[in-house]
Nucleic acid binder design. Sequence first.
DNA 1: GTCTATACAGTGATAGAC
DNA 2: GTCTATCACTGTATAGAC
Lengths: 219, 219
Amino acid sequence: MAQPETKERILDAAERLFSDLGIRGVSLRAITTAARANLAAVNYHFGSKDELIKAVLARRIEPVNTVRLQRLAELTAGDAVAELEDVLDALLRPAFELASDPDAGAFCTRLIGRVQTEADQTFREFCAEQFQDVAERFTAAIAAACPQLEPRELAWRFQFMIGSMSFTLTDALDLHTRSGGLCDPHDADDATEQLVRFAAAGFRAPIGQKNQAGQENTA
Amino acid sequence: MAQPETKERILDAAERLFSDLGIRGVSLRAITTAARANLAAVNYHFGSKDELIKAVLARRIEPVNTVRLQRLAELTAGDAVAELEDVLDALLRPAFELASDPDAGAFCTRLIGRVQTEADQTFREFCAEQFQDVAERFTAAIAAACPQLEPRELAWRFQFMIGSMSFTLTDALDLHTRSGGLCDPHDADDATEQLVRFAAAGFRAPIGQKNQAGQENTA
DNA sequence: GTCTATACAGTGATAGAC
DNA sequence: GTCTATCACTGTATAGAC
């Protein structure tokens, strides 16, 4: 107890190692060695490696979601209807800011984005839970900002926007190289403004003439 | 050699098991047992588990990319400038069609989308390689369809669109449930039309007043 | 409560016989 | 090409010291 709590040291070491080497590439032994703790400490404090990963994620996700909801609350104070661009900014900027934070950020954001689409359902479900409240509130705010938008189109387009965000956070296609240095996904201001502009136009796109209501269900 | 080649049987078994249980949840022993092959056969035919995963992916990705490039070639035959919506359709529809194919599709598409943002760089790099040629050609076609679009904005927005596609293929947020049954990401027609409309509006969005040219580089 | 040492079943990989 | 045997290593569980 003289030094930072064992639990905290394990979280720090795990976060750093995961982001450097990927989840698969890091063993519990490597983590506990780096944290100067015993192997069994992970299972004592967290229960399993999967729960440790969740704890690493939650420690970074929760503050981001808190900021998001706080900014949204400010925008909609007094039953005001917020501008679409302001709503999207409140949702996206905190995530990109975490990603560009050289201290904790680069590490963990790749993780968040990755895990959101990880092969194992476990982490996807966990992230969906963490995100559910935020998704519901922001969907409502976008609906208020776009009164002409049908619920079906709103759901699709919200999905598309979160995908754009998540994909850019992980930088799965190496945007910096691919753009010849023109774009830097770790520039939070630029990433936010670019995606706000892209998504706002997408939300405002007219819905198709043929409504899908009478369509057969092939499944 | 009397029955389907061992290599083929391993690929089939691996694809089915991976999509049912996730990559992590399937051991080589489970695969080789299901394929009625010996454990060492995987390493003989593929070299490693990672290479087997790549082979499973490539077998499905290549035909999709072939169709994409073929449709693009038809659109741009005779130096014609294709409509933006037609270009996006040629890029997106083959992927969503694979996803909705009950035979091979549902299995492998989740894999493709997942792996594209997997924690390990290995698979991301592999998918990026597979996608590079397609990305370059379609970026050029979009640029031709949107002559007013700056290269910087084009690169950002292409990234966003691929993210939307990838995220929807993995269905990381369970769109069907979240939309109360309104949206079905396995309906290839609907998914394609929705994303084409969203992305086309995004590509056509005006670029911001303040150009980032004179901005400091914080990295 | 916290931590240590240790044991265990299951993993991917490999060398060498057939 | 295929197979057996075996390797080092993984996550997990537990008994017991402080």
